[in-house]
Amino acid sequence: MKNSILLLLLFLFLFISCKTKYKEYADNVLPYSRFPQEKELKGEVIELDTALFRYPFRIRIEGDKAIVMDLHGFDYYGHLFQYPSFRYLSSFGRRGDSPTEMLSMENFRLHNHILWTLDANKSELTRLDFSSSGDSLLREETVALDEDILRPLDFAIYNDTTFVIPDYSGESRFMKVSCEGKLIEKIGAIPTTNEKALQEARPALAQAWRSFLDYNPRNSILAAVTQLGEVVEVYNLKDSTHVIRIGEHDEPEFKISDGYGMPTGIMGFSDVQVTDCAIYAVFHGTPFKEIARQSGSLPDGGKYIYVFSLKGEPLCKYILEQYIYGIYVDETTKTIMATDVNSDQPILKFSFG
């Protein structure tokens, strides 16, 4: 009898060990459930003298200029402000279907005082330069992406001649694309344990694993955070190392309907920035069941900013009093500028450190 109990305990131990190893995916996949530090932050509302926004999605700052992207803009998708006063200067990215207008704007990037925007509906990248006076952005060049690049929903600038774009075919994780819109190479794979989806429904799996990304050329770190679930991927493109961090909400959950991946878990991350010292990401954590139950009465956005090291190690969890969507982090001044889609005054400033 005693030997039977010992054998049963040994079996249970082995079963639990195998299950735990399975949940850890692979050697470069590390779970996290807590942060060494937790701090509360209260945002200061920046008063704007003009009403421009329907859904202020992204914010970037360079020198004395701030740019805010409106995902559902009335007439324009982008707005230029003086910084730090946030005095309105001009708008760009006119909404429309003419050759010089945009059907959508998924994101924009600043690089060497040049701005690039992404229009997924036209599958185009557009370059804009600042005017000589610096108070407006002028359209200079439009690049059509290859037809085999499926509906790109985000991009990062790798260098003067190359972009990084998520691969929504499911064949890889990312693609390097030339400034002429040509595919150069594919990078990585979707780090999922859903073998059935990998075999039978890669495009739907790729949709469910939609990620927001950022790249810092000074340290060669590319970070991606999933819109669903709680997965943070850190690629060092200099030495080709790759670390995956999975939080308590696990990888994106979805079901397949008519070939599309329909979310069933939680809203995860909504923005990420790789600074010279760390990775900052906005996290929501709201279950879709709760979103449906509340019928639109829940504030939109996340109340958390997660901070990871450049190797993906959890460092700090900021708990916010307001809900935010996009961020810009300035480690020199220890400030975070953020967008709030729920307010008529949608720009917030947080001090940290």
Rank of each mutant, 00 (worst) to 15 (best):
V272H: 10
N342C: 06
G265E: 11
E40S: 12
V225Q: 01
V29T: 13
L10F: 09
R54T: 14
P36H: 06
P287K: 15
K21S: 11
Q207K: 13
V341F: 03
A223W: 04
L145T: 02
L118Q: 01
M267W: 12
D64S: 13
I187N: 07
T333G: 01
V68E: 00
T20W: 05
L222V: 09
I46C: 11
I61N: 06
S270Q: 12
G188F: 02
F35R: 06
D119V: 10
E124S: 08
M262K: 15
V272D: 10
E290G: 02
P191A: 03
G296Q: 14
G96Q: 02
A189G: 07
D330K: 08
K42D: 10
Q273W: 04
I114P: 00
T161Q: 11
D148C: 04
L80R: 03
H284V: 14
A197S: 14
F350V: 05
T100L: 14
F13C: 14
D271I: 07
Q199D: 14
L10P: 00
Y77H: 06
R151Y: 13
G43L: 08
I16L: 10
D344S: 08
T20N: 11
Y235E: 02
E195K: 15
K23N: 12
F212R: 10
I347T: 00
E248F: 02
Q294E: 15
V164S: 04
N3P: 01
T117E: 00
T193N: 10
I347C: 03
L80I: 11
P299L: 11
E253F: 11
T162I: 09
V307R: 12
M262T: 15
R218L: 14
L6E: 12
R139H: 04
Q199H: 13
A144Q: 11
P203A: 13
I266A: 08
A51M: 12
E147P: 01
E40P: 00
K255A: 09
K42H: 09
E313D: 13
T339L: 05
D135L: 05
H79R: 07
R127L: 11
R60W: 06
D75W: 06
Y323C: 02
T161F: 10
L150C: 04
Y55T: 13
L222C: 10
S220C: 07
I291R: 10
R151P: 01
L10A: 13
I266M: 12
I319K: 05
T100V: 13
I46L: 12
R139W: 04
E321R: 04
L183M: 12
N194K: 14
D49K: 15
L153Q: 08
I347L: 09
S132L: 13
G181Y: 02
D129V: 06
Y318I: 03
L9W: 08
P166V: 07
C18F: 08
L310Y: 03
T275L: 14
T264M: 14
H242C: 08
S90F: 10
Y328L: 02
I244Q: 01
G229M: 04
N107G: 05
I327F: 03
A281L: 09
N236H: 05
L198F: 11
E313W: 03
G353Y: 09
R202A: 14
I16E: 07
R210W: 08
W209P: 01
Y22H: 13
